[in-house]
Design a protein around this nucleic acid. Structure first.
Lengths: 391, 391
DNA sequence: TCTTTGCTTGAATCTAATG
DNA sequence: CCATTAGATTCAAGCAAAG
């Protein structure tokens, strides 16, 4: 039941962690760790996980199954004066697992938590208190929510997810912006997502025909989370695995998973479910090249390859400004403002327009028989040449 | 500028409070109280207000300046009133105004707070800590949010409102269930609302043509809040009145208002705005029209619903070009030109044909027993699902 | 007068690599 | 650590100007 692709091995040190450094002695990849979430997290290597998805318990009043960080059970409370006490207990629980989760997260890793108004505000505030950095809050709009039977409130038709980086100013996290946009009619994916709740054949049922888990999440929801915030081969961890949706979707999408589950029945059901999952073919999963991740090409490389000659005159698309290509790969402005000034293609473009910044690749054009061409198209030529040479 | 209707007088003791008992010596009805919110609230009679709508500072914590891709500068909310030293300071502020607000609220009264992920989790947690009772969290989905210019997050396309009763088990609060349902094509009003942001002629502008207030809320949003959670003649209080939307809508809908505003410029603008409002005749107060959402289906939604599987091969009608469906909802071209290139269904169609633009929905086909079918035909299924969720 | 095109703007925690 | 530089990045509306 291990997902082993392309000779990738089973430890994070040789899969996800290869891409992003981090110690990872013995991450139990593609397995369900049975036991308490905080204790299990504490036994995992630090900074070894790319993505965490957490669906923590939330209704402490009804369930009364809260545990303190030391795993002792919190007595159910009914008294009004004790309500504060129970929020406090929930906060302590949240704090404990969030801290344990942060430890296993790589510096570039991100964390998702899903909840409802019963708990999500406390989780969100705790995330901020613990110095996580919220990237988005996401609304899962349900196409088919349970109606409000008493008619005393609005139909509770959504749940909230919080997406957070490990720390403020967190950079380097994965967000597959282009893929999300391409899948969404070529407009940016928004913070409000629409999915049906998990039902029908997707819903796990026991032998008695009753649902195995009370809050099984739809696979489509997890798929969007994983596709947006991880890459193939990454390690996805779920500290409250439950019926195993996170692991099943991660496996299907060519990611490694680590699941933690305390309840043996849930863990058994999740294991069986995961075993039945067939990973998608690699071709449908390979990370798409993005402009952002493309290898950098210096303008000088165009000169070195003879694609552009020193002394060439470049202009902007509307031929308002001109610049002379110098032998060292810099430009010299031939028109005011900035006449005579010398700088990189970007600097020269900014100077010409009198603005702070400019992408010289798309600003400057070269005259051809077919008309003006952005020098960016010459860069594309170099990139494809380099790709061929690499093979 | 007082709203006096049906012989109702100007003090809460003889208007809203007549319906629901509560002391109310000198509630300054239908006026703007100038000054600090907590101090002003403390001078108001206890248990005299039916509904509170609060739009507190969000504590945005913006760093540098943000520019659009066209190099224009985003006019950010950088006002001093939105800056707090720390989360602790923000929490203390929140706690103070919430306690002061609770005091003026009738036992049957309810409180609304609006915010974003920067502050709403702290507000929600504080509400629970202070023993308010959350009735709903409501998502205001914006039809026209500001995009994410750098492509590093999901478009932040919503704000969150929390609706809470004064205390746990709060009974007797107003919820106009039938009116909401009637206004929503006879199905229960959901917790996700769709409105445009405030712009155009509704947006207050100063003599210089610049917006008077950086965060003016749309009247439609306030109308739904007030129509759902108050009755004509009730007292609606806004402790952060700003540009006066709450008061203007309350007056228009035949409710009394009390506004608190510290900034003289905001208060002046709000006063002028309120003065220009004409209350609606009683009969027209029934239901607010709801905009039916034109469902926009993305190709990704077809995968998420299982209507098309990753790995499927799509072709054009004449089977000249082929493309592989990838797990993330993008296509990978399998034929020249463009072999190996990845993009949306539209982009891939354009690349295959070597043209600028293409409607992927009609260009790409899927093989079925009955022959090739345009993928557009799969959209109908998702549309019917989504229609259920549309407002 | 009507249509098309272009410009402006909105509660925003909005980069990554190199030296 | 900071400073510098390369270079990637936007959607829906409203309104004004142009056709």
């Amino acid at each position: 039941m291990k997902v082993v692709r392309n000779g990738e091995a089973r430890t994070a040190s040789r899969s996800g962690a290869a891409r992003r450094p981090g110690p990872s002695a013995d991450l139990p990849l593609d397995t369900i760790v049975r036991g308490d979430c905080v204790a299990a997290l504490s036994r995992l290597p630090a900074a070894s996980v790319d993505l965490i998805f957490a669906d923590p318990p939330y209704n402490l009043q009804l369930q009364g199954e809260l545990k303190r960080p030391d795993d002792s059970r919190v007595d159910a409370v009914d008294d009004a004066w004790d309500k504060f006490e129970s929020f406090e207990a929930y906060d302590a629980f949240t704090r404990a697992w969030l801290l344990a989760a942060r430890r296993v997260l790589k510096p570039t890793g991100t964390l998702w938590v899903i909840g409802s108004y019963h708990n999500i505000f406390r989780v969100g505030a705790m995330l901020q208190d613990l110095d996580f950095w919220i990237l988005n809050d996401i609304v899962w709009r349900k196409t088919n929510p349970m109606p409000n039977f008493r008619g005393r409130r609005f139909t509770n038709a959504h749940e909230t997810l919080i997406w957070a980086a490990r720390e403020p100013g967190g950079k380097g996290y994965t967000f597959n912006y282009e893929a999300m946009k391409a899948a969404n009619e070529d407009v940016q994916m928004r913070s409000d997502w629409l999915f049906p709740i998990c039902s029908g054949t997707e819903r796990l049922k026991g032998g008695d025909g009753r649902k195995v888990h009370p809050t099984q999440k739809p696979e489509a929801l997890l798929a969007r989370v994983i596709l947006s915030a991880s890459k193939p081969g990454d390690v996805v961890l779920d500290p409250f695995l439950g019926s195993g949706t996170t692991a099943a979707v991660a496996k299907r999408l060519g990611r490694h998973f680590v699941g933690i589950e305390r309840d043996p029945d849930y863990a058994d059901a999740a294991q069986a479910r995961i075993d039945a999952v067939e990973p998608l073919p690699e071709l449908t999963l390979a990370a798409a090249p993005t402009a952002r991740e493309a290898p950098r090409i210096a303008f000088g490389a165009l000169l070195e390859r003879g694609l552009i000659a020193p002394g060439t005159l470049l202009t902007d698309a509307r031929s308002r400004f001109r610049a002379l290509v110098r032998a060292d790969g810099t430009l010299s402005l031939e028109t005011a403002p900035g006449l005579g000034q010398i700088g990189s293609i970007h600097r020269a473009g900014a100077l010409a327009q009198g603005i702070e910044a400019c992408n010289g690749w798309t600003f400057w054009h070269i005259a051809t028989r077919e008309g003006l061409r952005p020098i960016d198209s010459l860069r594309a030529t170099v990139r494809s040449e380099m790709a061929l040479a690499a093979e």
